[in-house]
Amino acid sequence: MDYHFSPEEFFAFSLRDIYSRQGYSLFRMSRFEEYDFYAGAKDFLTSKHVLTFSNPDGRLMALRPDVTLSIIRNIKDIHQLHKFYYDEKVYRVPHGADAFREIPQTGIECIGPLGLDDIKEVIALALETLCVIAGGRRYVLDAAHAGLVASLVNGDKGGEILKCLCAKNVHGLRTLNADERLIRLAEIPNNLEALSEFDEDTEELMKFFSEEFGQNFRVDFSTVNNLNYYNGLVFRGFVEGLPEAVLSGGQYDGLLEARGLAGCHGVGFAVNLSLVRRLEHD
């Protein structure tokens, strides 16, 4: 039988296969969350807009802008390791757009008592995901450490400093009198010497991936853009020919704590499959 898949479906199925072989199980959204559920975590959501509707019982509901929050809601036992992957549509107003879009998104979440090996597994899966999407093109996973940035960004100019860091705006950081160490991190791309600034675990991780994946893994501090919920590694994946990051993720212990799961660890990433259509595949 001949099947005809759209590029989004093709990649969604390929990635599902990869994740399930690594022991991740499928998480399905079968119902809608209430609007308040998302309103309480607006800083975490990349788009502040939530598409709402009224339930017949009068409750204000929302079309999901995000899947991670719903997965977290289902975690009951924080002493057990949970590994989920999902393949859903999310509803957002993309940056610079003026209307909601339906975005096919796939991703994984690994939640529980995480060890270094679990984080390594997630990063390796992120790189494998990029490799599949790139289909022979170049790709790169940029990574940084949100905790390290948080320790260097403070004071009432913190927000402005973080914006400059995200934009690799070194002249702006100087004007704002940002910490010299932060300016060094922003200034030098793939600054492996800066690894010594990390805590031991992160340093080991970053070195491991730099050696393992070479050019495809880079330390880049412009990756950090949310210090409220991300605490450890944050990363973002780019494929040559796609104008924006196709993959983004990180360690979000802060989010788990804010959602009532203090002491629980989480790491994961999401893939924006609406972009893959722009790559011409043979």
Partner: peptide, 10 residues
């Protein structure tokens, strides 16, 4: 600079 272009045309 475009963020993705910067990675591949650095």
């Amino acid at each position: 600079a475009n963020k993705s272009s910067y990675k591949f045309k650095e």
